[in-house]
Amino acid sequence: MSGRDVLKNCPLDRWAWVEIDLGALRANVRTFKALLEPRTKLMCAVKADAYGHGAVECAKAMYAAGANQFAVATVAEGVELRRAGISWPILVLCEPPLDAIDTLLAHDLMPSIYTSDFAFSLGERAVALGKVGRYHLAIDTGMTRIGVLPDDVVELRHLIDFHRGLECAGTFTHFATADVIGDWDFKQQSSRFSRAIAALEAAGLDHGLVHCDNTPGTVLHPELHNDMCRVGIGLYGLHPSATTEPRVALRPVMSVRARVTRAIYPAVGEGVGYGLTYRVPTPNIQIATVPIGYADGLARVLSNHMDVLVNGVRVRQVGRICMDQFMFAVDTSRRSLGSVKTVAPVECGDVVTILGTDGGQTISADEMARLRDTINYEVTCDFGMRLEKVYV
């Protein structure tokens, strides 16, 4: 994308934004669809506002590229999709509070079920409203997060299946270590899940769509694709671990950009930011201000440790990252001063890339995650909190 095109994306009221490349998103969906047999459905996780990318716009693009169903984390997330006109099946990846049942039924959202109390309440209310409460049965095969235990699956289904207000649309589990090749715990989880499905079939109980593979599972364990795969982070062009990187090529979807709002030459010895943790070491050091801070997802722990891109060059962020702004330094004297880059002077309005590519340089979510001692999931989710999203 040219510099002129990038400037066209800048919001009028704040020089800071997130760019979402819908073409890359659609390409990633098609990449995962190509891994599946024609009969196997693709459920796309758009929880947490599509991992910070914008759930509504992403869901529409995903469906156009071949998605079959969607998964969210909360009832409110599902309602948002419905109110935006998205009519395709939506699974809520938890068993919500009983007070949410009317909302579930009103918006045709499928909850995850693993207790009889919730199942009975859903069924009773569905009958009263002349509806059927469709759900997915969640099985806890070893992650110890949500779900009914494998040994209790058939008993729970026998207990609730008499209810004409309920319909099992799917049965699933979630793997804790699908990204670890040859992992014993993964093998145990998959074995427990297979036995639970076999027990349901032996009891003559309809399990609906069977699904267990997440993003790494979909890439590394095609033998477990079953009826549907639930893909999340990979759709956004990010790998869940190093083990999937050689297996599938993905295109990052998110870039984070801003424009310089101030560029000055402070006197030698002047400090920068709260606590004055950086001081200007020599003449000709330019300090530029950028209107993105930790309230926008740029973690304060990155202060004095991260780079940004300006005019295709890496430059060092200096001083403590503020709530709404940060600063970076450039040396315009053409001398080498360690971490401070010698570059042409920066001007007010210049584009700064915090995440993404500029020229031949790239700052990835993985790079930022390593500096933060976290994962790329958290990086993109954080940037999606406050910054305006521009779809390109």
Rank of each mutant, 00 (worst) to 15 (best):
I233T: 03
L235G: 10
S255I: 00
V308F: 06
I287D: 00
G232V: 15
N226P: 00
Y294M: 10
L298S: 05
R316K: 12
P246D: 12
I285Y: 05
H207Y: 08
A202N: 05
Q317T: 08
I264S: 10
E223Y: 12
H221N: 12
E223A: 14
I233D: 01
Y265D: 08
L205K: 02
V301C: 04
S241I: 05
A288V: 01
S255K: 04
H211Q: 06
I264R: 08
V210S: 06
V272G: 01
Y294D: 08
G273R: 03
D206S: 03
L238Y: 10
E223K: 08
M306G: 00
L309P: 04
Q317D: 09
H221L: 14
I285R: 03
S303P: 10
G297S: 10
D307R: 14
G275H: 14
L238D: 10
V318Y: 06
T289P: 03
L250F: 11
N284E: 15
T289Y: 05
A202K: 07
P222F: 12
L224W: 14
R251D: 02
L302H: 02
A263V: 01
N311R: 15
T215H: 06
V256C: 07
T282K: 12
Y274C: 00
L224T: 11
D307G: 00
G275D: 08
T244Q: 00
L250S: 13
G232A: 11
T289G: 06
P283T: 14
Y274A: 08
N214L: 11
A242D: 14
R247N: 10
G234W: 09
V313G: 03
C212V: 14
R259I: 06
G237V: 10
N284Y: 11
V256F: 13
P283L: 15
T289I: 09
G208E: 11
G269I: 14
S303H: 10
M228D: 04
D307H: 09
A263H: 05
A203L: 02
L220M: 02
D296G: 07
Y265E: 12
Q317K: 04
L209W: 13
V272M: 03
P281I: 12
P283E: 15
V256G: 03
A299M: 12
R259Q: 13
G312K: 04
R247C: 15
Y274R: 10
C229V: 15
I292G: 00
L309N: 01
Y278S: 03
V248S: 01
I233E: 07
N214H: 08
A267G: 05
R300K: 14
H225K: 05
A263N: 07
R279Y: 08
V301Y: 08
V315C: 03
G275Y: 13
R300N: 06
L309S: 05
V308S: 02
R279F: 13
N304E: 14
G312C: 03
E245P: 04
L250G: 09
V231E: 02
N304Y: 10
H207D: 03
T218P: 11
V268A: 02
P240S: 05
R251P: 03
L235N: 09
R230W: 12
R259L: 12
G232W: 15
Y278P: 10
L205N: 01
R259K: 04
V313C: 06
V219C: 02
G293P: 01
V280Q: 08
L209M: 13
V301T: 06
H239Y: 15
Y236G: 06
G204P: 04
H305V: 01
D296L: 13
P281W: 12
T218F: 14
L298T: 01
P246I: 11
A267R: 15
D213V: 13
